Simulated assay, not measured.
Amino acid sequence: MNLLTLKEPDKNWDEFVSTHSSLVFHTSLWGKVLKEGYGCEMRCLVLEDNNTWLLALPGMLVGNQFFNVFYSLIPYGGFIGEKQFIPEFSKLLERKAKQERIDRIKIVDPKIKKPQDLSDFECVESYRHVLELKEKSLDQIWKDYKPNLKRTINKALKSDLFFERIKDRKEVDHFYELYLASMKRNRALAKYPIDLFYKIFDLLTPELADIFFVKYRNEPIAGIVVIYSEETAYYFHGGSSTEYLHLRPNDLLFHNAIKIAKEKGKSYFDFLGSEKKLSSLIQFKDKWGTKRETLLVFQKDIGTIRPFLGKVALGFAQTPLGTAIQRKLTTTKSGR
């Protein structure tokens, strides 16, 4: 068995993905979004035997000359194909990482439910919230909302808030301002550059993605990005103005995004993963009548010194000072 490296996913890659996965994040198109929008290199790894592809793992290289991470993938990645070959793949992956000076391997695969499936990796549990749409009418979906959520949506509907899909690329700038405002309010890393959202708009909308606004007096005060796979709508990211949070624009945003996903024939609305320590975010996702699942995040360090230094740097980046510096750099880079 050999482990092939594809730096540019080709037609063969997409044919393999279409046979084994319905996840849009596995496709070469999503790889193009990340490469051009995030400014990273892509690595699609393929386990083959006698010219037959058995198992694949798409990923992105994130880092610099001091510390590099192979990340599969934003927001979901993981294995494609015959999962019984994961042990063989894992051994070859570690060898490949050493050859390419990769210091950490990180895999987010929602289909892996047991830590022992990647036994040589460290495993951290987080939560994933999924709302089932397929077997429910819009009335049934509404019925499953928490009572307080219904009240806030009704309040928003009676106010001067207006929900709409963005149609002009220039409006991505307004979305990014809301994204940065939310990151500042939550003291979180603004890890996504504006170019990523430009590429989502350029390459995925309207068939595979939407960016929605809630406006107040014709001013965007909240926005979300939703990405579509064959069966599932995924909440990718969002942002909102602190000044208008009392109007509950986020509740109105998600309510309408869920309705549109249902109208598109999607079976699920996926709120994506949340670290267990983020209790407020988890409560927000719980109130929609979602099913809370365990999402396993796998990580493996290659070597000791460079991963340790990377951990120290990440720890600083997550402090109030570190996040403030990072937001300032992101704002400067985007011209704000």
Score class of each variant (00 low, 15 high):
Y216C: 05
D168V: 14
L178D: 00
K155P: 00
E94N: 13
N50W: 03
K170N: 14
T319V: 07
I74H: 05
D160S: 14
P115D: 03
R187S: 13
Q299E: 15
K215A: 13
I86K: 03
E231W: 07
E132S: 14
I105H: 07
F67G: 00
E231H: 11
G238L: 00
D14A: 03
D14V: 01
L118N: 01
K285R: 06
F298G: 03
F316Q: 04
F16S: 05
I305V: 14
P75Q: 01
A261H: 02
K311Q: 11
K143W: 12
E125D: 09
I166E: 08
I211S: 00
P147C: 09
L45R: 00
M60C: 08
E48K: 14
P193N: 01
F79S: 06
I305H: 07
E177W: 06
G59I: 03
D120C: 12
S280M: 10
E82V: 11
F89K: 02
T330K: 13
L157G: 09
K114I: 11
V124T: 13
K114H: 11
E41F: 04
S159I: 07
Y268T: 09
S137L: 07
S22G: 09
Y216K: 04
E41S: 13
T323M: 02
M1C: 05
S280N: 08
K146H: 15
G322M: 02
V69G: 04
T232I: 10
S182D: 03
I227G: 06
T294I: 12
Y228P: 12
V214T: 08
F271M: 10
I302M: 06
K136P: 02
L73E: 06
D103Q: 06
M183W: 00
L6E: 10
S279I: 13
A233H: 01
D14E: 03
T27R: 06
I325K: 00
G315I: 00
K146Y: 12
H255I: 01
K143V: 08
M183Y: 01
R217P: 14
V24I: 15
K155Q: 13
I107W: 08
H20D: 08
G39V: 05
V225P: 04
Q318S: 10
T19G: 04
F213E: 05
Y228W: 07
K106T: 11
L252P: 00
D117F: 11
L23Q: 15
M1N: 02
K106Y: 12
E94M: 13
R306L: 11
K134S: 12
I141K: 03
R248W: 07
K287G: 07
E8R: 11
L295Q: 13
I112Q: 04
E82C: 08
G265H: 08
S280I: 13
T52C: 14
L4R: 04
R248D: 03
D120R: 04
T5V: 09
K191M: 15
E135L: 10
H20Y: 14
F308R: 14
M60S: 12
D120Y: 09
A188C: 05
I80G: 05
L272E: 15
K32W: 01
D117C: 12
P58Q: 01
P249D: 09
N68K: 15
R336M: 14
L131F: 08
K277D: 12
E48L: 05
R104Y: 04
D195L: 03
T242W: 06
